[in-house]
Write a protein that binds this DNA or RNA. Sequence first.
DNA 1: ATATTATTAGAGTATATACTCTAGGCAGTC
DNA 2: GACTGCCTAGAGTATATACTCTAATAATAT
Lengths: 222, 222
Amino acid sequence: MKTRDKILLASLELFNERGERNVTTNHIAAHLAISPGNLYYHFRNKSDIIYEIFLEYQKLVDYYLDIPRDRSLTLGDLTFYLESVFDGLWSYRFFHRDLEYLLDSDTRLRKDYREFTNRCLAAISQIFGKMSDAGIIEPQPEDLRSAMSLNLWLVITNWMAFLKTAHAVDEPASLSLTELKQGIYQALTLEIPYLTTGYRDQVMALREKYRPSLPESSGPTV
Amino acid sequence: MKTRDKILLASLELFNERGERNVTTNHIAAHLAISPGNLYYHFRNKSDIIYEIFLEYQKLVDYYLDIPRDRSLTLGDLTFYLESVFDGLWSYRFFHRDLEYLLDSDTRLRKDYREFTNRCLAAISQIFGKMSDAGIIEPQPEDLRSAMSLNLWLVITNWMAFLKTAHAVDEPASLSLTELKQGIYQALTLEIPYLTTGYRDQVMALREKYRPSLPESSGPTV
DNA sequence: ATATTATTAGAGTATATACTCTAGGCAGTC
DNA sequence: GACTGCCTAGAGTATATACTCTAATAATAT
């Protein structure tokens, strides 16, 4: 593999594990057993590395959220979208952690991320539209659909951060992909009231698959 | 005012404005025109300052979310809870921004924050309960209520972060309290399907008050 | 083979950051 | 006036961090 790609890969790995803030360019170089000079030959600075990683992330999600125009959606599609999005969030999980700082430090990234968010929101809204076309959920007026999409986005993108804060220190610090996907349970919770009688049971059964197994220690106790 | 209190106040102000990551203890001291030595006489380290600020934040929110046991809730109460919580989020807005890092750097804070979250989730769940007692929303089974509370928590606590990322660089970077409270619009969106016919119009009217004024530039465009 | 270009090593640097240490001031009290 | 306890100044330090510079090596083209 090219050194450049190795740097991107190692950076992503270290960022995800320790958080961007705790990973220096020197760490990355040391991890790869290359010199800092070498790293800086391939990337002008740390921001550039992060930006490149964002481009990959964006590409992945854009690919997953390409909504077919020529056919209607099935429950299988819905499952695929949810699973894919959470997979993406998992693979690039460092990104949402320090998002604000990253956007403040790189205006190019800020601009791109803004547009990325808008595309995602539009995709979610389209999915809602197609799901009501398919008779899975009741149709809703445009402005409600926007607000719902935004709420779904907030729940999905921040689920992981929530999980991390809910973890105790002594518990295995590493978050599992399974746990992460309990976010799907939360996401589907948002849809419950809008399900048509025809699909209600099926969607509820799907949701049940992602229910947190043990009574979550972070759940309300009263 | 005591120097100690001045340090806490200035720290909060600077953290909110620039983000905890961008504010050093030297900055805080310089801002107050005191010496670093003086600052470190009052606080062992930066973490201690942050922890103290968290305690204040916690106290404020716990105070606001003290649910009366002896009477039922009104729509006025609901408005009060929402307004108060967003006021709190605004006043301590640096906190949620770097939350993960902060919790990773201070196990005491992690533990306390965990319990704080649980108390908040329990309070939200209680509010749902009392609102259905009051006939404002339809009663829901316990596990749905928990999941809904968690979603509401996610939307509320991450609304501000979303707003920040949705802002363009050239727009006035500072977020207004008014904008922040559009989060209430999003929060109430979650309740819509559960409203009783008796209260539906009133709650929808309340929600309307917080509707984003201009067609949000970050909204979906398709 | 030679010239050119791409890649790499590794020492080094300017700056920042959290924090320490010593000396001293100031208010009250005996 | 001297003692005590609290508070403050400000210079200083060890470490870290992002990044640079020069020289050397590998790869490729001619």
